[in-house]
Design a protein around this nucleic acid. Sequence first.
DNA 1: GCTGCAGGTATTATATTATGATACCTAGTG
DNA 2: CACTAGGTATCATAATATAATACCTGCAGC
Lengths: 261, 261
Amino acid sequence: MKTKQNTLYVGSLAKGLRLLRAFDESHSELSLSELAARTGLDKSATQRLANTLHIEGMLDKDPGTRRFRPSHAWLEMAYAYYWSDPLVGQAMPKLINLSQDLGETVNLAEMSGDHIIYVSRLPCKRTYFAATVIGRRLPALSTSAGRAMLATVPEDERRAAVETWPIKPFTPNTTLDRDAIRASVEAAVHDGYAISKGQMILNEMAVATPIIGPEGRAFAAVQCSVSGHTWDRERIVAEILPRLQDAANSISPSFQSQRGA
Amino acid sequence: MKTKQNTLYVGSLAKGLRLLRAFDESHSELSLSELAARTGLDKSATQRLANTLHIEGMLDKDPGTRRFRPSHAWLEMAYAYYWSDPLVGQAMPKLINLSQDLGETVNLAEMSGDHIIYVSRLPCKRTYFAATVIGRRLPALSTSAGRAMLATVPEDERRAAVETWPIKPFTPNTTLDRDAIRASVEAAVHDGYAISKGQMILNEMAVATPIIGPEGRAFAAVQCSVSGHTWDRERIVAEILPRLQDAANSISPSFQSQRGA
DNA sequence: GCTGCAGGTATTATATTATGATACCTAGTG
DNA sequence: CACTAGGTATCATAATATAATACCTGCAGC
């Protein structure tokens, strides 16, 4: 193992985590050999690590197919996360009120490197599955929430982000032109909110307002998703935005603790 | 390490997982020494393992306080879980409809050993925080969902569960008398649903109907929580139950894959 | 019904890797 | 200012993870 030659680094643990990360949206259950292939570990290592994870209750194993799946422990981890994130506790009641008030889907997103991650979702209308579950990470530049947050950081940093952060097409309409993205972000600087259309799924519209943190900088945003068939920009600004902003502002208290190293 | 003397068991990985499990509801951020104390590992081991988890992005570290916290990766794990659980995809749209229809909080619970775990929650009214986040595990015998599910298993198994599964007081009204619990479960056998009152929090009421699986046995339930101040048993049966049952029945298709070893 | 193969399971000798004792820093307290 | 608690770094040691290999099992094709 030529990786991290550090006596404070436990390779076996890191490899075990690689097994966990092998599961995602399109790999929801994996056999031993698939795990080995996806992690790049050899058969023996995979066997030992997967077995350990199974014994420890992190992976379920179908006795018939011998395939591994994430266990309920993965949900318990989300539960523990929630208690550790001071924002969620503050925001939850206001988000519930907001979603009931609007009758539309309301989300809480946080900045996570150059992505955003949905921390809480309150779906009110049926949509596609991925829009209803928490923990989804999306490129910040392609989301209204990400742009609304970016709008609160200093100009140089903002520009750098628009130039370098990753983007990739989700729909034929996903904006891949960084100039267009910059325009959208700068509009958000001016307006204090961001609206996007069809970035993640066709005909979906989203509006987001930042939750301002300690130094005027946002690490989170409240976002509302609606159907582009029944809503347009004007009506969103008139009917949704005011209440969205009220909610975001009422959450804003001091969130000193920034995450990461 | 006298544990699992098995060559297919990687101790370091298991120890790393112990660190992760050290975080919970009442331990949302931990220092190195607290981690060591809670896991029973010595200082050096804790240091190395925590450091590894930090490098791998599983733990955030506050640069000021040097305390560790669950990272966003913990939410991503929930996301991966959702894709692996066939029930969630089936149930979600119906649950959304149901919650909008009722205007009350709707939950999806699954059996997890002798506990239930909330897999999806759609809060409609403000309640206490723990009732709004997924991944919470509760003793099955103390919940309407658990009792509704138990009601679908063979009699001997059911009796054994009522006798032996854990219970503990959450409120002064939590039922600790196993005879009373048996009565409640047997009522659910007869009625096809379970109603509980004040088990987890004072004056909260809950009604649950099982999602019937392959051999007539339920591994999941749809549950609705309401305030005991504004609802009573009769009104729940009259107004909530029918729609709850419709929802549960419409989900029921074949869920062959049972979890665990 | 037999053969071959893919995928899962079990064993073992080897040395790489995790270990934990100890020493060193740093910041906060009395 | 001295003291302490808590975090960080180092290192010799052997315990532990490793990966090669052999063994099962069940399925597909003949």
